[in-house]
Design a protein around this nucleic acid. Sequence first.
DNA 1: GCCAACGTTGGC
DNA 2: GCCAACGTTGGC
Length: 151
Amino acid sequence: MTAYWLVKENPSTFSIDDLEEHGSTPWYGVRNYEARNNMQAMSEGDRVLYYHSSASPPGVAGIARVVKEAYPDETQFDEGSPYHDPDADREDPTWYRVDIGYEETFPRLVPLSEIKADERLSEMTLVNRSRLSVQPVEEDAFEIITRMAKG
DNA sequence: GCCAACGTTGGC
DNA sequence: GCCAACGTTGGC
């Protein structure tokens, strides 16, 4: 069964236009346990809201898809990487990534302010736990936001 | 650029 | 195991 997620990225680092251009990308560098656990729970084909954080305005820019399920994030072993983790063990990696593929760019960005203002979305993790960068989304919320983008 | 929120680290 | 200090995220 398809599940729904939301991932955040600063668009000056990797926007949805960059994702469209590349087709897909490894989602590396996540160093938060809960976010990692969420990635490990993803299945190929799951749908993902692509959120632009630290943008003006911040909001959901489009839809992506899980194209490869969780596998070890090599950057944890790379001493030259900002994501290097000196405690990481090759036999039992700490950090994982998934691959995310481009699906569509919304005709307009759905700003965080509108999501916060909509009572139906008041339970969203995005609204209540602003710092979690990979989070599950209810199917209803996914549909509501998709409709807001096209409505 | 500021600063509140909050996850993580580390001393005890 | 508690909790203060610290660092980072991310909205504004």
